[in-house]
Design a binder for these strands. Structure first.
Lengths: 246, 246
DNA sequence: GCCGTGCCAAATGTGCACATTTTTATAAAG
DNA sequence: CTTTATAAAAATGTGCACATTTGGCACGGC
């Protein structure tokens, strides 16, 4: 049977912003979940076929993702999943490290029992995931810890910047495998909370810094691999199915 | 005489990425220079007429600026220059303050004579501009100081984030007038350099923090004003002329 | 006098038909 | 067999013709 899906018949000019959003979210999630490997070419015609929408719609979404620097757009040559260099990855981790130093500096000024309690609860979750060996949850919760820290400041700009950094590093997981076992990270996170409770800025920053350097040191290049996803249809049907299941 | 410029005749299908970039830069510069006031509607047909390009080209640029959050895009209602709330402005300044705390923390680790010398030279420039009463130069150099600080780290992600924050706050100048006289800022900048030279993290951060709180406290709402630029053609011909003059 | 209703002009959104460019396949030459 | 040149095929870029939606304005009723 043909892999072709329902396609909009000619003359379908109805405005449908939800459809844009659906395609955007689908591709974005595929990127964030690492389904789309670095270097993969995202051509317009096959994507239009897969999602059953016009090529212009795909085109618009691709360019939007390009403007957000989530895809690499090359004139006349289309969109590709970016293949970050090792320096790029270090740059993202370093940025996160520097940002968190600032966050912690500000956070010790307004830390209260409620925040400590919330963070402690999160640590329990992390430990639970680690002890039951749920690696996917561990990675997710490990990132969420830092999100909680910055969200405690209640600053939309900072929160967005961190989300941006995390989304970028998640793409990099497919190329540079970071910290396969993040069990140790739980203790380091705990040490940060402990320093916060004691209002000890210097220690909080020092622990955080060590934490990131620890993660960075585990980065390694598995160069030859770079598989560059082949079957786009399979990738996106999986993503769409997962999203529909919720 | 008609205000209409040369318009692309029918059948002009030549690929011209430079034209996209020219329109993008023109609108971006108009935004950054504060020529486009908050709340101004940017409709596609008049812009196409002004720049002498097709409406699709304008459309693409507008959506790109929207994806970068420099313009506010409302479905079916076009693009507007965003009208930030006072909280938005505070959020940007606070983000800058938190970021700089992190930058300074990292910077004391790798500060050397060359850096101190460079910053000192910059301070001299700032003072010169202040003493000769060049307000435009003072504002520009005042922002440049913080750019120099973050650039000293050599991290592309952090540099980009700061540039983003500064570009956003420059738009806000048209609504919330910050620090009409930034002369005092020079001394505060000098104090930061002094703390850096002494490798005193705590003092550097404290001075930086006071500096930002100082600027923030001067923000005030001149609500009724909001003129919302009327004559788009005049705005952009001025921008284009200035850019051509260089 | 003021608010709701229905038209009309203007602006935005979208598919489509090409032009242009890139990539791939094929063939010929060294 | 490798390399280069050429042509065909595929993919991207762009203007255009509409459809749809929004905003303004006059008209009429309360």
């Amino acid at each position: 049977m043909a892999t072709q899906r329902r396609r909009n018949g000619p003359g379908n000019r109805k405005a449908n912003p939800a459809e844009d959003e659906a395609v955007y979210q689908a591709i974005l999630h595929a990127l964030l979940e690492g389904k789309l490997k670095a270097g993969t070419k995202l051509a317009e015609p096959p994507l239009a076929d897969i999602f059953g929408v016009s090529r212009e719609r795909i085109r618009k979404v691709l360019h939007r993702l390009g403007a957000e620097r989530r895809l690499e757009m090359i004139p006349n040559r289309g969109a590709r999943v970016p293949r970050p260099t090792l320096d790029d990855v270090r740059s993202v981790y370093e940025a996160h490290r520097v940002l968190e130093a600032g966050v912690l500096t500000q956070l010790v000024r307004l830390v209260d029992d409620a925040l400590i309690e919330k963070l402690t609860a999160h640590l329990a979750e992390e430990r639970a995931a680690a002890t039951r060996g749920d690696r996917a949850a561990s990675v997710r919760l490990s990132g969420a810890f830092h999100v909680h820290l910055v969200e405690a400041l209640g600053n939309a700009e900072l929160t967005r910047f961190l989300a941006d950094l995390l989304s970028r590093s998640s793409v990099m997981v497919s190329v540079y495998e970071p910290a396969t076992d993040s069990i140790c990270a739980v203790d380091e996170h705990g040490a940060i909370v402990e320093a916060l409770r004691a209002r000890d800025v210097a220690r909080a920053i020092a622990v955080s810094r060590e934490h990131f350097l620890h993660v960075e040191s585990r980065l390694h290049l598995d160069d030859d691999a770079v598989p560059a996803s082949e079957d786009l249809a399979a990738v996106f049907t999986a993503v769409k199915a997962k999203r529909r299941r919720r």
